[in-house]
Amino acid sequence: MTAGQPLAETAPILPLELDRVSFEAGGRRLIEEITLTFEAGPRTLILGPNGAGKSLLLRLCHGLLRPTTGRVIWRGPGAALGPGGPTRRQAMVFQRPVMLRRSAAANVAYALSVNGVRWKDRRALVGEALERVGLARLAERPARVLSAGEQQRLALARAWALQPEVLFLDEPTANLDPAASHAVERIINGFHQAGTKIVMTTHELGQARRLADEVLFLHWGRLVERSPADSFFTQPRTPEADAFVRGELLWPCAPPPEEA
């Protein structure tokens, strides 16, 4: 790996293909035979009620979980470098990001160091990433005393410094106030403009409308619908998606997956 080189110039790892991927835990099938392909470009938003399997799907894509059956395959020419687990070309921002017990700047520097960026190249990248998310002022603050919104932005800075080709985001604005949410959405769009493929979950419809180019709708671990954003919000093709878009709660009246 050549440290400090813009990664966009290396061969892409996308598209990402899921081939009949399912996932079981505790004797329950939580993800049901999902087959789909993520292409570079459009911002993909994964929607679905609580417990639909959105976070699990992201973890499977990112390589943190191994599918029980089926395969997760990176089809791009750049993927041959590192099989399996998460590699440098993809990053993930978790629903609850974990900050190491060190300063905000050191948290970003750590991610770079793990990925082989040399010490003298890190400084500038760290500064730029913190600037990007508006945390330059708090660079020397211990990361774990930052507010939830600041930590979420720091997690984005950590991802930004890595210049990933694909960025998975798991409800990055949960628990944030509207101003902080907007700041985070702006940063996400910054990634998009820089050419990073965005795959993101949310259960906020307004946010999905603002950010989505295409929508994946999950329900009970199944991929129920995949549509371009415009048509998903105006004319959803499935009754479940229709109910969700109209803001009706799905889970109390829906059949459990065992009976389905």
Binding site: L64, F94, L100, V114
Partner: peptide, 24 residues
């Protein structure tokens, strides 16, 4: 338990993870 997913996501191998945990 707290760090595992984050460290794996960042690309830390077992040796690096151990050093990080001992440090933190």
């Amino acid at each position: 338990a707290e760090y595992e997913e984050q460290l794996r996501s960042l690309g830390a191998g077992p040796g690096r993870a151990m050093a990080t945990l001992l440090r933190d």
